[in-house]
């Protein structure tokens, strides 16, 4: 964006201030990360590390059952969670932010309301919704039947065709406040004269949104998209609460983190640590790789617009 600014502090002093954070980052982030990487390169007998096996754990992950079929399935579900979050959570978030932007009096109230679910642990949110959606005692189906919509009532979490979308919607219900806040802040920082100029030129409100506001929001949309991607790939508590560690029903809500959890802590296999570390590394590589590629591509698109 804008040109580089000169640092306020001389470089050595700045580095000195950065040191404590860097040390903490190294101990608590880089070290475990390197450990996971080395774990994935060894074979294990229970908790005992054995021989160096190079990429064998990764080869096993892609060529032997159950991983060969579970890995792509879990990955596809993560991708659908991302697509769902983009369509539901982020577009609704943008719409709400845009609607609230003009309504100063109620904006704060609704921002608070929409971000409230944030404050609740996602596990709790998941269990709460699994109770609400219970086909026996859940108020959701009861309400539908009371409204004469009994045919719409479903075993929401018991049907593989609906279960994953329930995960998408529950996730959106909890996190819609996140795009709402970011887009709200971005809208507030836009130069109002641009829109005024468009208005004077006779642009309708829809034209002003599509051709003036939206392009100016593009950098923020990029940020939100990348963060959404990361959250979607790492989804764990809500799928766990809604479908258990096996992604019930019949694996319909299985995601990468659950696959990792199962192979690491719920498996009787001798080499559980080796394989599960390989799962974690694959997930890490995908997240970093796609995030970097996407950001680069987005930067290019932005440049094309200016």
């Amino acid at each position: 964006m804008s040109g580089r600014r000169t640092a306020a502090l001389p470089t050595p002093v700045a580095l000195l201030f950065l040191l404590p954070a860097a040390a903490l980052f190294g101990i608590f982030v880089l070290y475990p990360m390197a450990t996971a990487l080395t774990y994935s390169l060894f074979s294990w007998r229970g908790t005992a590390q054995e021989a160096f096996v190079g990429l064998d754990n990764f080869v096993a992950l892609f060529t032997t059952e159950p991983y060969r079929s579970q890995l792509p399935r879990a990955f596809a579900h993560n991708a659908l969670l991302f697509a769902g979050a983009m369509v539901v959570q982020n577009s609704v978030g943008l719409l709400l932010a845009y609607v609230l932007h003009r309504r100063e009096r109620v904006r704060r109230l609704f921002q608070v309301l929409y971000t409230m679910p944030y404050l609740v642990s996602p596990l709790v949110v998941g269990y709460l919704w699994s109770l609400l959606l219970s086909p026996l005692f859940g108020p959701v189906n009861a309400a539908l039947r009371a409204l004469g919509l009994g045919s719409v009532a479903q075993p929401w979490l018991g049907d593989p065709d609906t279960a994953l979308w329930v995960v998408v919607l529950v996730t959106a219900w909890q996190w819609v406040g996140f795009p709402l806040l970011i887009y709200g802040a971005a809208l507030g920082s836009l130069d109002p004269t641009m829109e005024e100029a468009a208005m004077l030129d006779g642009a309708t409100s829809r034209q002003r949104f599509w051709h003036v506001t939206l392009p100016m929001l593009l950098p923020v949309i990029g940020t939100v998209s990348v963060l959404t991607f990361i959250f979607s790939m790492e989804a764990f508590p809500i799928p766990y609460a809604l479908g258990g560690s096996n992604g019930s029903p019949a694996g319909a809500t299985d995601v990468m983190s659950l696959l990792f959890y199962r192979t690491a802590f719920n498996s009787g296999a001798s080499n559980a640590i080796g394989i599960s570390s390989a799962v974690a590394i694959v997930l890490f590589v995908v997240i970093v790789g796609v995030s970097v590629l996407f950001t680069r591509w987005f930067r290019k698109v932005e440049r094309g617009l200016t």
Binding site: F28, Y39, V226, L227, I230, V288, S291
Partner: peptide, 16 residues
């Protein structure tokens, strides 16, 4: 953004 992405991904990895 990229940095935030990398950081979050790294935190995820500590799970492992």
């Amino acid at each position: 953004t990229t940095l935030a992405g990398v950081t979050t991904a790294v935190v995820a990895l500590t799970l492992a």
